[in-house]
């Protein structure tokens, strides 16, 4: 099975934007808001990062500015949703629509090109790892030689776990989703924690988006192609736990990588393989609601 190792290697690259977006989405989800704007935020991050990388001629600065733009968009989303008591679902759709329009409009206005914009001054992302490490059999082939984003996403995942389960802030975020009155009866404001969650979503989506474009050295309209939606699914499949996100994102990444291979070598249509994670998530959701229902039936 010589195809497995390169496949696993590319699965890791593919899963990284999903993992990043789902991490931010995890915060909003735990604080009790269904954040369907991940797609739009991711797209905004993708566009702004490469634009600023181009103008500042620095990928790091560009990425940072891209993150800032994405966080501004998520702050607008949060304040309309929370302060004006709008339906988070509709405002989320609005953000997705806005991002899909705005990125193309700006790309057209700046480069007179609404198709693929290739940026020549942006070098390929450096791949990290030493030859010694890469020599480690199998593991070296799979885990070494990715861009900094990949390793950063793992660090952030650990940080995400730490924040949610080892800081007062994380406990309050979770309490906001589980029982907001418990917080407000002690004089804390659940909406403040929801706002913070949206900002975190903006941060991780900005970073995830940056990987999409910088990896390619180009901006393609709708480059996210539903990755934000998949990130939402990753949260559910990952059972709303950081480690679950890693596994779920990997499943989607693997399905994507495998579908490319299977198409050619095994003659299994790639679309079928890409559909599997959704069906898997659906079954997992049904299973968990049957379980919750049985428990609830005894209680009532």
């Amino acid at each position: 099975m010589q195809f497995t190792i390169p496949m696993l290697h590319s699965a890791i690259t593919i899963m990284t934007p999903l993992l990043l977006a789902s991490m931010g989405g995890l915060f909003t989800e735990l604080s009790g808001m269904l954040n369907i704007a991940l797609e739009g935020l991711l797209l905004m991050g993708a566009f702004c990062s490469i634009i600023f990388s181009y103008y500042t001629a620095s990928m790091i600065l560009g990425t940072l500015l891209g993150i800032v733009c994405t966080m501004i968009l998520s702050a607008i989303l949060a304040s309309v949703t929370l302060n004006l008591k709008a339906n988070v679902f509709i405002t989320g759709l609005a953000v997705n629509l806005f991002a899909s329009g705005m990125t193309v409009v700006l790309s057209f206005a700046l480069f007179a090109n609404k198709g693929v914009v290739v940026f020549d001054n942006i070098p390929p992302l450096p791949l990290l790892g030493t030859p010694e490490l890469a020599k480690i059999p199998i593991l070296g082939d799979i885990f070494i030689g990715h861009s900094a984003f990949v390793y950063l996403s793992w660090l952030l995942l650990a940080l995400c776990y730490f924040v949610l389960y080892r800081t007062p802030f994380g406990f309050r975020i979770r309490a906001t989703g589980l029982h907001p009155e418990a917080l407000s009866s002690l004089g804390m404001r659940p909406n403040r924690y929801r706002f913070a969650s949206f900002l975190i979503s903006g941060f991780t989506c900005g970073l995830g988006g940056a990987l999409l474009t910088l990896n390619l050295g180009a901006f393609v309209p709708n480059i996210t192609a539903g990755k934000g939606w998949i990130a939402l699914v990753v949260i559910f499949l990952g059972n709303k736990k950081p480690i679950g996100l890693l596994i779920a994102a990997f499943i989607f990444g693997l399905a994507d990588a495998f579908s490319n291979y299977a198409q050619g070598a095994l003659n299994i249509p790639s679309d079928f393989i890409l559909a599997i994670p959704y069906i898997f998530t659906l079954l997992a959701m049904i299973g968990s609601s049957i379980y919750a229902n049985k428990k609830g039936a005894i209680e009532s």
Binding site: H179, A182, L186
Partner: peptide
């Protein structure tokens, strides 16, 4: 009750 069921007694008590 204003309690988070999934937290421990201590976590509920010290919240905030």
């Amino acid at each position: 009750f204003m309690l988070v069921e999934d937290f421990t007694v201590a976590q509920n008590v010290v919240m905030g």
